[in-house]
Design a protein around this nucleic acid. Structure first.
Length: 432
RNA sequence: GUCCGGAUAGUGUAGCGGCCUAUCAUGAGGGCCUGUCGAGCCCCCGACCCGGGUUCAAAUCCCGGUCCGGACGCCA
């Protein structure tokens, strides 16, 4: 192992000890008699100071010939120094170039000159070196980790379902066809059907965090053709029960990030307000009334337009649920109310800016489910692998799916969803 | 897919018919400088998306293409 310490593990109390730091040549400032090399690693910056009179000539030569963003290993003595950032600097005994960087760089990493998102995505590896960009992905990690902890704590078992599937899952969205040996297959739009199968399988409570694929030709700041979905499914719980899990999960994510992600939130200049639970619940009927009061044209049975969504979000001003949706605009697996089958036990969880999640209590009667598939104009034969599980003892169950990117972008106040994905896939972008 | 806006050095920009041999910053190369921390100062390098048209003259106007941004649609 070359590295002995990350930049942040070195302190002025270590005065006199020798350490090796590995990272990128962030900046080189040659003042003549004294040269400063700032090395950046994952955790922060270290100042390496070279005094012309006392430094080894070979070391000085290496540093003077160093190009910005080259990878270096610096072995040096920690020197307590009030004039240095963080109160210490490194007096090098050896500087090794581990990876030379060409010049000019595809973009600036120091924050002096902004680059367009498109430029940054073309050189994402370099963009990732910017502390600001890295902060987003460190928070993404905190978010996913806290979700796993929360769900594990609540008895959920993590599963992994296939992304290559034989048939369209739910209708509605367009799928990417692929060649699977001599047959046609598709990239899955959602783990929905498979997580439901696990209710029949007796796992009782499951979750999956994984990729979903949508072949829709959308072109907005909140859509991706490959996104990350956080899905749960739980037996013996109704729609209200899983809504409670969802709002508590969101609250948990926010408080965990606020608590453990302070450093990254500061880098981004973001202050997080942990949402209060329970989230407000409004019915679909109430939602369209609000939209109409705000001047939107909307008929009962219409899905919410972007404008309506924004107008309702503005009125409510915080996370909320829209419940009791018209059965005809929700998928076949949403359970209609027994006494009022035109509406169903489906809900959407909303951030004022956009929809974050949709879920429902599921229809678990084989006969009704089969009927609903037909009613939606889908062929039940294609769903035999799924329907079969409902004929041999399927518990009542409910679940939801949250768009991980949307949860993250709304939490951080980021405008473009592409910012929170390493290598976004959209209508135009397939590389890198 | 529709509508609107845009494309100028590696990066980010100014210019919007002749003052353009194109502005500024950052960066690259060279020089000065022993405490910089967006170091400073001097020199220097580097660009008008592609194709067609209008005009005495096009970075600038028009048409087409490509790509980018935004709104909407589709969708979650």
């Amino acid at each position: 192992m070359i590295r002995t310490h990350y930049s942040t593990q070195v302190t002025s109390e270590m005065n006199g000890t020798s350490v090796t730091i590995c990272g990128w040549a962030h900046e080189i400032r040659d003042l003549g008699g004294i040269t400063f090399l700032v090395v950046r690693d994952r955790e922060g910056l270290v100042q390496v100071t070279l005094f012309k009179k006392t430094i080894d000539k070979n070391v000085l030569e290496v540093v003077r010939n160093l190009s910005r963003e080259s990878v270096v290993a610096v072995t040096g003595t920690v020197k307590k120094e009030a004039k240095a950032p963080n109160g210490y600097e490194l007096v090098p005994t050896q500087v090794t170039v581990l990876g030379k960087a060409d010049s000019p760089l595809p973009m600036d990493t120091t924050g002096k000159v902004d680059a367009d998102l498109d430029t940054r995505l073309d050189a994402r590896f370099m963009d990732m070196r910017r502390p600001r960009t890295q902060a987003i992905f460190r928070i993404r990690h905190l978010m996913l980790k806290s979700i796993r902890e929360f769900l594990d704590q609540d008895g959920f078992i993590e599963i992994t379902t296939p992304k290559v599937v034989a048939t369209a899952t739910e209708g509605g969205t367009a799928l990417f066809p692929i060649t699977y040996f001599e047959r046609e297959a598709f990239l899955n739009q959602s783990p929905q059907l498979f997580k439901q199968l696990m209710m029949s399988g007796g796992l009782d409570r499951v979750f999956e965090i994984g990729p979903i694929f949508r072949a829709e030709e959308h072109d907005t700041r909140k859509h991706l053709n490959e996104a990350t979905s956080i899905d749960i499914e739980a037996s013996y719980l109704d729609n209200e029960d899983v809504m409670v899990i969802l709002e508590n999960l969101v609250k948990h994510v926010y408080s965990t990030v606020a608590e453990k992600g302070t450093k990254y939130l500061e880098m981004l200049g973001v202050v997080i307000t942990v949402p209060k639970t329970p989230f407000r619940r409004i019915t679909y009927d109430e939602a369209i009334t609000i939209a109409r009061d705000n001047g939107e044209k909307i008929e009962w049975g219409d899905d919410l337009s972007t404008e309506s969504e924004h107008s309702i979000g503005k009125t409510i001003g915080e996370h909320y649920f829209i419940t009791d949706w018209p059965t005809k605009i929700k998928p076949f697996y949403a359970m209609p109310y027994e006494d009022k089958p035109e509406i169903c036990r489906a809900f959407d969880m909303m951030h004022p800016r956009m929809e974050l999640s949709s879920g429902a209590q599921r229809e678990h009667s084989y006969e009704l489910l089969k009927q609903r598939i037909s009613d939606k104009g889908l062929n039940p034969d294609g769903f035999e692998f799924y329907l079969k599980a409902f004929r041999y003892g399927m518990p009542p169950h409910s679940g939801w799916g949250v768009g991980a990117e949307r949860l993250l972008m709304t939490m951080l106040g980021i405008e473009n969803i592409r910012e929170v994905v390493l290598f976004p896939r959209d209508r135009k972008r397939l590389s890198p």
